[in-house]
Design a protein around this nucleic acid. Structure first.
Lengths: 234, 234
DNA sequence: ATGAGTTTATGTATGATTTACACAAAGGTT
DNA sequence: AACCTTTGTGTAAATCATACATAAACTCAT
C-alpha cells in the first residue's frame, strides 16, 4: 500500500438506492425528478452524499426514510460505481443499494424532497441521470438472482397475499411473460411444500369471482427451517 | 440529493483484493505483511488507494500486476466496506474484490512491494489488519456461491488439469471434507456432460500410479452454449 | 520379471424431483 | 337461473440425483 497521504482524501462518496415496489402485475422503481444541475429535470435514483460520520448502510436507510417515511425496510448493497468521469463535477464514487418495500405503505411527496417522486415501471424506463440506468440494471439483475434463492419476494407484498399475487410477483421479477410463465399448479405445489408460507384460513372479499385464500410468510418459522439445513430455492 | 458541496470531498477510496490460488488440495490467499503503521507487521490484504484519475477496477488490476506481474486475471467486485471507524487515520472506504489466479504463474517477492508476500491457507487464518478478516470472509462466501453457477474454477487451475484436481478444487472451495465430499463417479458424469470441458487425449507422465487423462476448459465453446440457453450449475 | 502399491476409470438400479396437463367449484353480475 | 371470471386441485411420465464396487494403468522395490 502506498504511503499514507492526505492527497487521497478528496473523493465524495454517495449512495444510490433502487427502491422496488410491486403493484398489480408490475415491478416498479421509485425515481425522483432532479431539481438541480447537473441533469436538471432528469429522472434519477434517490441518493445522497454519505456524511462524514455516517456509515454507508445508514446513509441509505436515512435517504429511504427521508423519502418515504419508512424504517426497517429490506436493504441490500449491490455494487460500487466509481468511473472517473461518472459525475461531471468531481470524483464521486457511488455505492448502489436496492430496497424492497410494500408499495401501499408509501405515502407520496414527503417534505424533504422538493422534487417530484414517482413510481416507474421497470420494464419501460427512459434515460436517467448520470450512470443511473447502469446502476438500476445491476440492481435489477441482483434482485432477479436473489429472489430465486432467498424468500425476499414477500417484502414487496402486503402481509396477507394470495398465491396468484405471489406468482405474478415472481413472473414480473423474473421477466417471464404472464400466461406463459410458471405453471400454476406446480408453483403452488412448490410454495405450499414450504411450511413457512401459512394458510390463514381467510379469503378475499368482494371480488367478482371465486375468492382466493390468503397466505402469510412466517419469517421465524423460515429461519428455524434454515437452521435445520433447509435451503430456499424457487 | 443535498446541495453539491466541497465539504463532502474528503474521503479516501481504497481497493482491497482477496487473491485466491489453489495448490495441491488447498485454497490459498495471498497476503502481505505490512511495513508501515497502522497495523505494522500484521498480515493484510493487498490494496492501495485509488488514484484520482483511475477507475476502481483499474486500481485493483494495477495492484495485482504490481504484486504478481500478471495481467488479465479474473477479477470481481464483491462489496464496499465503509464503516466510519474502520481505518484509524481517517475516513477510508474500501471496495473489495477477489481475483483468481493460477498459483504457479505467481513469481514471488516482486520489487514494488518491500513487504513480504505469502500464500496462506484460507482454512487456517490468524487475525488480519483492519477489517480484513471480514472482507476476506465476504469474498470467500461470494466465491463459494459463484463457483456453483459460473465456470470460474478453471481460473485457479493450470490450462491442462485432471478431473481429480478439478474435484479437489471444488471440494476445497465448497469446504467439503475430502473422502466424504462429492461422489467421484457422479462428479465426473456431470462434468463430462458439459461438452466444453474437453478431453485432450493426453495423460499425466511420471506418476507412480495409473496416469490420469488431461482436460481443458474451452471458454469459446462454453460461451456458445450459454447463448443457446445453457446454464452452468454444479 | 513379478508382485505390491497407488490412483484412475467406469455403469446401473433406485429414489426423488420436475414437468405437463384439464376441469369442477366459488363467488359476483345480469 | 345462467353467465362470467378466477380459484383450486391430482396424476402419470420424464428427467435428474444418488449410491455404490471393481478392473486397469502405471511406478517401484525386489
Amino acid at each position: 500500500m502506498a504511503q499514507f497521504s492526505q492527497e487521497f482524501f478528496k473523493t465524495a462518496v454517495t449512495v444510490d438506492n433502487v427502491i422496488f415496489g410491486f403493484d398489480e402485475a408490475d415491478l416498479k422503481v421509485l425515481l425522483i425528478k432532479r431539481g438541480t444541475e447537473p441533469y436538471l429535470d432528469k429522472w434519477a435514483l434517490p441518493g445522497d452524499f454519505v456524511y462524514p460520520n455516517e456509515d454507508i448502510d445508514a446513509a441509505t436507510a436515512r435517504i429511504l426514510e427521508e423519502l418515504t417515511g419508512l424504517k426497517n425496510v429490506y436493504l441490500e448493497q449491490v455494487r460500487t460505481f466509481g468511473s472517473v468521469n461518472r459525475h461531471p463535477l468531481g470524483r464521486v464514487v457511488s455505492v448502489a443499494y436496492f430496497s424492497l418495500l410494500k408499495i401501499n405503505r408509501y405515502t407520496v411527496t414527503p417534505a424533504s424532497f422538493a422534487q417530484k417522486a414517482k413510481w416507474h415501471s421497470v420494464s419501460k424506463l427512459k434515460e436517467l441521470a448520470f450512470d443511473h440506468n447502469e446502476i438500476l440494471n445491476a440492481c435489477f439483475q441482483t434482485l432477479k438472482q436473489r429472489v430465486r434463492v432467498r424468500p425476499i419476494g414477500f417484502e414487496l407484498l402486503p402481509p396477507k397475499f394470495t398465491l396468484t399475487e405471489l406468482q405474478h410477483l415472481y413472473q414480473a421479477i423474473l421477466e417471464l411473460d404472464p400466461e406463459n410463465g410458471i405453471d400454476k399448479r406446480n408453483f403452488r405445489k412448490k410454495i405450499l411444500s414450504m411450511d413457512f408460507i401459512v394458510d390463514l384460513n381467510e379469503s378475499q372479499e368482494g371480488v367478482a369471482h371465486r375468492p382466493a385464500r390468503l397466505y402469510q410468510f412466517d419469517k421465524d418459522k423460515y429461519e428455524r427451517f434454515v437452521e435445520e439445513g433447509f435451503n430456499f430455492e424457487l
